[in-house]
Simulated assay, not measured.
Amino acid sequence: MGFFIRDLHNHIVALQKKQCVEHTNKKPFTVFRGQGLSKDDFDRLVKTQGGLISFNNFLSTSTKQQVSLNFARRATATSDLVGILFDIKIDPSIPSTPFANVHDVSYFKGEEEILFSMNSIFRIGPMKQLDGNNRLWQVNLILTGDNDQDLHMLTEQMRKEIHPDKKGWDRLGHLLIKLGQFNKAEEVYDILLEQTTIDLEKASINHMLGMVKHGQGEYKDAITYYKRSIKIEEKMLSPTHANFVASYNGIGLVYAKIGDYSNALSYHQKALEINQKALPPSHSHLAMPYNNIGMVYHKMGDYSNALSYYQKALEINQKALPSNHPDLALSYTNI
Rank of each mutant, 00 (worst) to 15 (best):
D7E: 11
V13C: 08
L15T: 01
Q16L: 01
N25T: 11
K26H: 13
K27V: 00
G34K: 09
S38P: 05
K39Q: 08
Q49W: 05
N56F: 05
L59G: 04
T61Q: 15
T63C: 14
L69N: 10
S79I: 01
L81S: 03
L85H: 12
F99R: 04
N101R: 04
N101F: 09
H103I: 01
L130V: 00
N134G: 07
R135F: 05
R135Q: 11
L136F: 05
V139S: 11
I142K: 13
I142P: 00
M153Q: 14
H163N: 14
P164L: 10
D165K: 13
K166S: 12
H174R: 10
I177N: 15
K178V: 01
L179G: 02
G180M: 06
V188G: 09
L200N: 10
I205K: 14
M208E: 12
L209R: 15
M211L: 12
H214W: 09
G215N: 09
K227N: 13
R228E: 15
I232P: 14
E233F: 05
E234H: 12
N243M: 03
Y255R: 06
A256I: 03
S262T: 09
S262G: 13
Q269W: 01
N275I: 00
K277A: 03
Y290M: 08
N291I: 00
L307G: 07
Y309R: 09
A313L: 02
E315I: 02
Y332P: 14
N334M: 12
